[in-house]
Design a protein around this nucleic acid. Structure first.
Length: 160
DNA sequence: GCCAACGTTGGC
DNA sequence: GCCAACGTTGGC
């Protein structure tokens, strides 16, 4: 994806993973809005930097927990900007190779939209042939930010 | 807690 | 530029 694809067409859809022990959908609900810091994977960064625009919808996914799955909906609230944590030596996300002049890591703010009425678990998603093309379901996938096709988005919402 | 899968790093 | 070693992710 590149700059010429930005701001064209209808809003895109995304999926963002978070470990609920670190930051859950309930945390987002309480705070209303959050800077999605700590992404240190280039592909995930590129989706935020080059693909996301304010108003895009996001599936909030709980990973590394008892029942991994989609638990809510958020919305992209900003364009991408430098992740402040990369400049903070006290942060676990500090990156000594990054400079303010040439920041390596970008993020967006996301805001809470709603919780799903129930968790749509990873296990359940795997049971739908229509969804098997999702990067989320690819074996060994470790991306924490990924696109969701419009038809997959609608299909999943219809499961709720 | 285990470990497969993957991305990154660094020696050469 | 190769690739082994290492660290991390995340399901189970």
């Amino acid at each position: 994806m590149n700059a010429e694809h930005r701001h064209s067409g209808s809003p895109r859809h995304w999926l963002m993973k978070s470990e609920p022990e670190a930051f859950s959908i309930d945390d987002l609900k309480r705070k209303r809005r959050e800077a999605w810091d700590g992404v240190r994977n280039y592909q995930a960064r590129n989706f935020m930097r080059d693909g996301m625009q304010p108003g895009d919808r996001v599936f909030f996914y709980h990973s590394n927990c008892a029942t991994p799955g989609i638990v809510g909906i958020a919305e992209v609230a900003t364009d991408a900007y430098p992740d402040p944590s990369q400049f903070d030596p006290a942060s676990r996300y500090f990156d000594p190779a990054s400079t303010r002049g040439q920041p390596r890591w970008m993020l967006v703010d996301v805001k809470f939209v709603r919780k799903l009425r129930r968790t749509i678990s990873l296990d359940e998603l795997k049971g739908h042939a229509a969804l098997l093309g999702m990067p989320l379901l690819r074996k060994g996938n470790r991306l924490s930010v990924m696109p969701v096709a419009a038809d997959e988005w609608a299909y999943i919402l219809a499961l709720e």
